[in-house]
Design a protein around this nucleic acid. Sequence first.
DNA 1: CTGAAAGCGCTTACAG
DNA 2: CTGAAAGCGCTTACAG
Lengths: 344, 344
Amino acid sequence: MASIKDVAAEAGVSVATVSRALNGHPSVSPAARARVLAAVETLGYRPNAVARSLRTHQTRTLGLVISDVLNPYFAELARSVEEEARALGYSVIIGNADERPDLQDHHVATLLDRRIDGLLVSPTDGGSPGMLDAVRAGTPMVFVDRWLPGVDVPVVRSDGRKAVRDLVAHLHALGHRRLAIIAGPAATTTGRERVDAFREALGAYGLPLPDAYIGQGDFQAGSGRRVTEGFLALPEPPEVVFAADNLMALGALDAIRARGLRVPDDIALAAFDDIRWFVHTDPPITAIAQSTGELGRAAVRALVDRIGGRPGESVTLPARLVPRRSCGEPDPARSPSPVRRSTP
Amino acid sequence: MASIKDVAAEAGVSVATVSRALNGHPSVSPAARARVLAAVETLGYRPNAVARSLRTHQTRTLGLVISDVLNPYFAELARSVEEEARALGYSVIIGNADERPDLQDHHVATLLDRRIDGLLVSPTDGGSPGMLDAVRAGTPMVFVDRWLPGVDVPVVRSDGRKAVRDLVAHLHALGHRRLAIIAGPAATTTGRERVDAFREALGAYGLPLPDAYIGQGDFQAGSGRRVTEGFLALPEPPEVVFAADNLMALGALDAIRARGLRVPDDIALAAFDDIRWFVHTDPPITAIAQSTGELGRAAVRALVDRIGGRPGESVTLPARLVPRRSCGEPDPARSPSPVRRSTP
DNA sequence: CTGAAAGCGCTTACAG
DNA sequence: CTGAAAGCGCTTACAG
């Protein structure tokens, strides 16, 4: 592979001039520039980004540590992050933490070793040691979706509080009174907040959220299944199950189906995070949608600001309720009949 | 950030000894090794991978260029690739080509500039110029899922021929005779092969595949919708639509629903690629499943072989039919009634 | 077993 | 406008 030396020889100039010509430095004569460009062309020269990075102390690479690319929510987040990063001249390396602090640390360490310019993370837990070290070391960082309270890093996330209130209002209007939630890990902010918001919203209607109606999940389908089985085995099962993410909703659907029950007739289901398949599930699933793409883009912008020495803006975007048929409401597209209530 | 020099000073040895100690070189005295390790510990030293890469000419990084991470099939592929790569000591940088040759070239170029050790690609089209250059330049490469005929690169992929025959047998047994396909781009091998396999399987039953029943899609949902609308507007619409990937099946479902029709009563639907949501769609969708995880792992192994100077094994894995209710078969889990035929 | 030195491929003051 | 030279942080023959 041709190096800058080869180009210099071919063009009859020094490597310094080649470097300047290629980097748009003003003080290069048109003649020299032309010769360099011609040499680059004939040799098919591509600058070695590794060497450049070593010299300039920047890699133009961002790290993104998320918990699960198989989760459509994170896949969409990753995609928008990559798009915005590319638009700003950065590449991104994605690390899949799989909700495991040790894996999260592995990725953070690897990314830091590779000297990425900045780190976007959706922390898996209360903050793995390596991640906290990275913050302390002054690595430009921003939290996206999930964050660590008390850590001085900009956070870009959704606030689902209002949407959860809307959801509970919707459920209450449909006559539901016994509402349960499949929560995410308590160590994650999204795990805690969604339960808190749900409890608070229920409180406004004088409804309790008993411990038996709070199932501990891990944002994966398997836990949604197990928790839902537990709910269904209760002497007084809930009328509604609210899954704190889309994968746990999938697991809940599995469990409900395995029991031979039907949604929403036997039990209603709602989910945090909307995905396109929810339109076509049986029945279509009521969900709380985030502006995922905008979240990813805002996070990249904040991170690039930090890298450039600017403050980096924290952003909170509202989520919104998308009511469908899984809680008992009729599908307006199919049957213009009045709202069916599961309680008379 | 501490460098190897700092460690050497702290340990009272030369940088050469630090390097040897850290890289497990045999000829380092236990005493020196201990002092180095202690210094590393107190300084929190982490070797600079950029500098190491420049020196050793290897980055221990693999590039993966796929067309769409939002497609659950590719998300799963990406995940298994990352897992196997990590197990072998590599990181992976993913490039999303979005089915655009220009973006594919952008990613290939960026990856090459970063001097990745090898490239895994699922080519978007007949081979963008940059990709062909990379092959010519001798970059270790393997094709996964899609490949370029006539290019001497190992390919790791599924063979869906048998599964497509099984699908057609299934459809034929259910009484369907007018079968249509939403094809992927003709420039991709998977785009072509699935149509060929389908046509061939139909031929075995003496069934034609008229041009009107071949819709040109691009593996994205929107095209599945448009093609299906076209099918439904035909004087004699097909009885079955077979989508060559899961996203086009989603689009087909949208179009069918928008028309107020029902699956499978009004029209049957099947898809290439199985995803977990297909179990819960209305109705559950008959699909052809690939061994995606095994594909990703085999691809990484082949690539690492190439990087190591070994040949790199091409692998072809069989796909399999997963019959569900979307083509008219009753759901055995729900109703043990006899097969309902759409044609008497 | 150890260290001094060269060199990987760039960029960038510095001097002219 | 241009080139010689230093240096980024490592690894690795080479000599001892």
